[in-house]
Design a protein around this nucleic acid. Structure first.
Lengths: 222, 222
DNA sequence: ATAATATTTTAAGGAACTTTTAAGGTTTCT
DNA sequence: AGAAACCTTAAAAGTTCCTTAAAATATTAT
């Protein structure tokens, strides 16, 4: 299970993340409303946890925007004690659950599990890495349609993120096992893919390891 | 269960729709009285929820018109607190239930379920997606008659909305299991269907996924 | 049965997109 | 500097898909 957690109080966030990850829930963390909204729009989370008081955009704003776009990912709202009105607003705008601060992290984990144990709305087959999500069914990378060869390459890279794949491997996997020579095929398509990653403004990059091959990695990673 | 919800306050509507859909009620939404009336006349809803204060046509107007045409779909009226007079009017014109604003969405859901648990007026076999309703009995798509092949294809697409169906699948399902070649059959009929969706001004579109097949999707969805 | 109408098949041209090819440019390493 | 590996680009070649209309077939009405 992968969730998004939008929370500006850093100490709290770190503690909560630590406990959640320990119990097998993978957490992406956003520290303000703007970043939170951006991430929330990606169809890769099983649930979203929103603090209400946030810099730039409130949790309510995020909730509203997300729901307006028809995204149905389960959402849990967090807010400081006694802001009962927020609770009502949140539930009205389509939140799935509400938790008053301070809360026990274990309870949050439990509610997340309860929410996500519902029949999957997402039966899509999606491979994720960093801010990329590739849909195997319709061959789209972050909604952008790819051609067959582009798709073959990005799929191989996404299935082996941060690992070097050499050209012979890519050739035989994408073009066929006869692997008749042309390294340039791969070079051309790597170039096309880089252009598309650029267009998507993705943090992920395809790095060249000279003499060895290519690897997919996230901008800030080594 | 599929209902029509006519409501002009967008935020409220989104929140309510979200909760209803989550509880398994499929909701079509109209934002003003005119659109509401148009939709209300389609024989596809198990119930209709009408706000009273609406642009263009009031909920009362819609109610009256719908009932005058002999349509017996259960109707719930919504109105701002204390407009008791509206309540009386509504029930007089043949509303089935009445709910004062603000209301709890869960209560609306409960009342809907109660209303619809009555003997079904609609035993027609209809498949819906987005603003499309296809009647299996007389092979009409939003009242527009289709030929056998057209019907076969739209039926397959409607039964698998937002999923890619390839040509071989469509060929074998519509033309027969021998699936003798001709991809062009499918292409021709997809073209005919697109023309009809256009004519119906539907929000739904048939998308081509080059090399893979076709998928039905709603304009704004991915 | 025959004509009128509608549907399905066939076919062909062209539009849109993909892949291959090729050539020139850049980077990296020795 | 020179060589090898890699990048980028664009034109050529190849595919797939769209659209249309006429021919063949089936259906319905007269």
């Amino acid at each position: 299970m992968r969730i998004l957690y939008v929370e500006d109080e850093k100490y709290l966030a770190d503690a909560v993340i630590h406990v959640l990850e320990k119990s097998g829930i993978s957490v992406d963390h956003a520290e303000d409303g703007e970043e939170g909204l951006n991430l929330a729009l990606k169809p890769i989370y099983d649930a979203i946890v929103l603090d209400i008081m946030l810099p730039k955009l409130s949790g309510i704003d995020i909730l509203r925007d997300v729901r307006e776009r028809g995204i149905k990912t389960p959402i849990i709202m967090l807010s400081a004690l006694s802001q009962v009105e927020d609770k009502i607003k949140g539930l009205n705008y389509g939140a799935d659950d509400y938790l008053a601060k301070p809360f026990k992290t274990a309870e949050l984990a439990a509610r997340l599990r309860a929410l996500v144990r519902r029949p999957a709305l997402n039966d899509e087959k999606i491979i994720c890495y960093s801010d990329l999500y590739y849909n195997l069914e319709d061959r789209t990378l972050n909604e952008l349609p790819l051609s067959e060869k582009e798709a073959g390459i990005i799929e191989a890279l996404l299935k082996n993120p941060e690992h070097v794949l050499n050209k012979e491997y890519l050739l035989s996997h994408v073009w066929g096992s006869d692997a008749s020579g042309e390294d340039n095929y791969v070079e051309v398509y790597i170039s096309y893919l880089r252009k598309k990653l650029e267009k998507l403004k993705s943090k992920a990059k395809i790095k060249t390891i000279r003499g060895l091959g290519y690897k997919l990695c996230s901008k800030n990673s080594s």
